[in-house]
């Protein structure tokens, strides 16, 4: 054995060292780059977070494309459905995507490994969050492009600031909630189930898949105090041709802001870097 080690060290010594200090912000940018590479290479994850919502967009428009919605002043189905599916996609790309990836990394010990390196934890998290937001931006762009080119959905200049603010706040809100959700995910295997239980029922009562004009009051109230409907409604409002003014729905934005704060508190208080064993 000693012969092997002697040969090995003789062959590799001296090892060359480099000395250079990168700023933490540059490290964040590097992290985002590597996170993005890893994200798009994992086909299943990329499909689930980005392509899946676009498939819904195409399928539902194919089924209901020619219809007009009388409850909402006779607007075209696409004008109502595209902002709704935009909300759904945003939730998939931020909340579900981030929570799953963090739960998997935590179970695999990647978070623990990072803790043992000089990389500040906030830099790692900023990289992961930044990458999530880049993915969300790609999905928002694809949805709006597909909506306007294929389904003639108009992005109105008067409500564009409201649209942007809602998308940005919604992304931040569901990113924060995604991190918060990892505190109730026991292990990586349970992640999809837990996340679906949290999100799917809310999408049904939040007017994403169907117009809920006949829903009972308590259901309507429930939807309004959770963050899914405020996001969907606020986006739908920005796209509605009858919307006058800048189109900000302050009550919706307030609910999203409140959930962002709540999620932040949960993260700061209960976020775990190591899995339970």
């Amino acid at each position: 054995m000693s012969t092997i080690s002697t040969t090995a060290s003789a062959e590799f010594r001296p090892l060359s060292t480099t000395t250079s200090t990168e700023s933490d912000l540059r490290l964040v940018a590097t992290q985002i780059g590597f996170e993005q590479r890893a994200f798009w290479r994992n086909r299943t994850r990329a499909f689930f977070s980005v392509v899946f919502p676009l498939v819904f967009l195409v399928v539902f428009n194919a089924i209901n494309g020619g219809h007009h919605i009388t409850e909402l002043g006779g607007i075209s189905y696409s004008t109502w459905f595209v902002p709704g599916i935009l909300a759904y996609g945003l939730i998939m790309a931020t909340f579900t995507n981030l929570a799953t990836s963090v739960a998997v990394s935590r179970d695999a010990g990647i978070l623990k490994r990072i803790k043992g390196t000089p990389l500040p934890r906030w830099v790692f998290m900023a990289g992961r969050i930044g990458s999530t937001l880049v993915t969300a931006a790609v999905l928002v762009g694809a949805t709006l492009l597909l909506g306007s080119l294929a389904y003639d959905v108009q992005i109105r200049t008067s409500t564009l600031p409201a649209l942007i603010v809602t998308v940005v706040l919604g992304s931040i809100c569901f990113t924060t909630l995604g991190l918060a959700a990892t505190t109730v995910i026991p292990n990586a295997d349970a992640a999809p189930a837990v996340l679906n239980i949290l999100v799917l029922p809310l999408t049904f009562i939040s007017g994403i898949w169907m117009v809920l004009s006949g829903a009972p009051g308590w259901l309507d109230f429930t939807a309004k105090i959770f963050p899914v409907r405020p996001l969907a409604h606020s986006l739908q409002h920005a796209f509605h041709p009858a919307t006058t003014g800048a189109g900000f729905v302050w009550s919706d934005l307030a609910v999203l802001a409140a959930w962002t704060l709540g999620g932040l508190v949960v993260c700061l208080r209960w976020f775990r870097w190591e899995s339970r064993r």
């Binding site: 990394s105 010990g109 043992g116």
Partner: peptide
């Protein structure tokens, strides 16, 4: 500064699988 000078081989440690 301490972590800059130590290397750790943990018992269980994943790495970014897709890189």
């Amino acid at each position: 500064r301490m972590r800059e000078r130590m290397g750790i081989v943990l018992q269980e440690c994943g790495v970014q699988d897709d890189l």
